[in-house]
Amino acid sequence: MSAHSHVDGQLPHEPEKATLEGRNKVLGFWLFLGAEVVLFGTLFSAFLALRDKVGDGNPTADELFNLSTVAIATFILLTSSLTSVFATQAMHAGKKMAMIWWLVITVLFGLGFLGLEIYEFSEYVHEGHGFTTSAFSSSFYTLVGFHGAHVAFGVLWISIIIGQVLKKGLTVVTAPKVYVSGLYWHFIDVVWVFIFTVVYLMGKVG
């Protein structure tokens, strides 16, 4: 009784919820996101506790951060979240190629964000803000770097899903993966909202 034997090749509406497996995947992913909230919450709490502990002569948040770089990164990630939701909408409309192109654009934005973050981190290291410089620098790189690692994983994951949809088509098996990776991408954007608020903007305010 495989559920993906659509004789007319017509996908059901909301194909990610068409099978029990698909619905379970979405439910399980929400519980995973709840655990991710805890993970990032602990990293944020470590950062909040240590953000003033710079030590003698080491760069402070206010000296380091360049708000225009952060604004560009924020804009890139926010826009990629919009293209990701367009991919999910194209999937719901059964438009496979439109969905793939939106996913490709999302991945490219993700790569742009990563490039900017790598550039930013290398600038900081040049300015004497290494991983072990101070408690502030360690908690900063752990929190922001963990978010960057999530972006890198998302880029890899969505790329693999694009390959699988190209190979196997848009079915009730592949659709839940597209939907769930979209949830993941939005979640990464939501975490970034707190990072630019708590780390960068509050770092500038003091």
Partner: peptide, 14 residues
């Protein structure tokens, strides 16, 4: 429920 559960624990830590 999943997200609020996460926020509860994360909020306590923060």
């Amino acid at each position: 429920i999943g997200i609020l559960g996460g926020i509860f624990i994360a909020g306590t830590m923060i």
